[in-house]
């Protein structure tokens, strides 16, 4: 266990607690889909079945911890589109972006559609979401998620995110980019060692390109959320820092009820713009969910 993510030993606070948290399985969180059912009604339905839910958020009644549910996808309520199994921190992406009703939204890397459907729910199925996904094979699960959850304001496109056409500007953009997914790691019976993925060295360049393109697609008063589920600063603060160097961008503070750490202003030999402190890091020993990095970005002025 001591070797897990040891490269982050000086970066992650209470590092031993962090490592210990990786021994625990990910808890089961669900998001109640208000497009289909009121949260209070769904809670009542499940309680009648003897299934206990616990609120996962003080502010948002759609986010629940479901300790009694091992496989929410096996429930009739899943088939009906009432619930979507989603990590708590993943659901916070849509909440932090908070797209308005009747706005124009771009989800740059949409599959499998959990965050897309969440945006649609927040927008009350109004406005337009462009759900972009490069790989045709992933259009299938994306389409299924959107259909099951009753999304009717989304259009699916198939562009490379970093080359999304500049024909249109968006009010809100979600850049939940491909990443090394370190934040999803928990010790399981299947593997007890963390292996470096050589492919992840290519990721920062791709992420930078996606973030730049997303910024160029943003309206003047628009808002973008850059999100990864990794701890690696080279995929997080370094990418946002690159944007700040290349564009007239601003990083905004994020208000959340959850315990987060601020973004880094330096990592190894790299120094980052001090505005990176306004980004946030979710760690599993602080919020028992998938590790995430998020940055709220807009145009300066």
């Amino acid at each position: 266990m001591t070797h897990l993510f040891e490269q982050y030993g000086d970066m992650i606070p209470d590092f031993s607690c962090f490592q210990e948290s990786l021994r625990r399985p990910l808890p089961t969180h669900i998001r109640i889909n208000r497009l289909k059912i009121a949260p209070s009604s769904l809670v009542e339905v499940l309680e009648e079945k003897g299934i206990r839910l616990q609120p996962a958020s003080r502010r948002h009644d759609t986010l629940w911890l479901a300790p009694d549910l091992r496989l929410p996808g096996n429930m009739l309520e899943y088939f009906l589109g009432y619930i979507h199994p989603q990590a708590l921190t993943s659901a916070l992406a849509g909440i932090i972006l908070s797209p308005h009703e009747n706005s124009c939204v771009l989800d740059m890397c949409a599959a499998p559609g959990g965050k897309t459907s969440h945006c649609a729910e927040i927008m009350n199925n109004t406005g337009l979401i462009i759900a972009n996904e490069l790989y045709p094979a992933r259009h299938i699960p994306l389409g299924h998620t959107l259909a099951r959850t009753g999304v009717m304001n989304a259009v699916v496109t198939g562009y490379q995110a970093q080359e999304f056409p500049l024909k249109q500007r968006f009010d809100f953009i979600l850049a939940d980019v491909p990443c090394s997914c370190e934040g999803e790691f928990r010790v399981s019976r299947k593997r007890d060692t963390y292996r470096e993925d050589r492919g992840k060295k290519m990721l920062p360049e791709l992420q930078k390109k996606i973030l730049l393109r997303g910024f160029d697609l943003l309206r003047q008063k628009g808002k973008m959320l850059y999100a990864t589920c990794t701890y690696n600063p080279l995929e997080n603060e370094s990418v946002v820092n690159h944007l700040l160097n290349e564009r007239e961008a601003e990083v905004f503070s994020i208000d959340t009820e959850f315990c987060v750490e601020p973004g880094l202003t330096q990592w190894k030999k790299e120094t980052y713009d001090k505005r990176l402190q306004r980004t946030i890091r979710f760690y599993p020993h602080r919020v028992d969910s998938v590790g995430f990095f998020m940055a709220s970005i807009g145009r300066r002025g």
Binding site: L128, N153, Q168
Partner: peptide
Amino acid sequence: LRDTAFISSAVRLKPVQAGL
């Protein structure tokens, strides 16, 4: 598909799927 002022933009983007 929900009607919206942005529909013409969506059409220009070569949709793969649209709406429910």
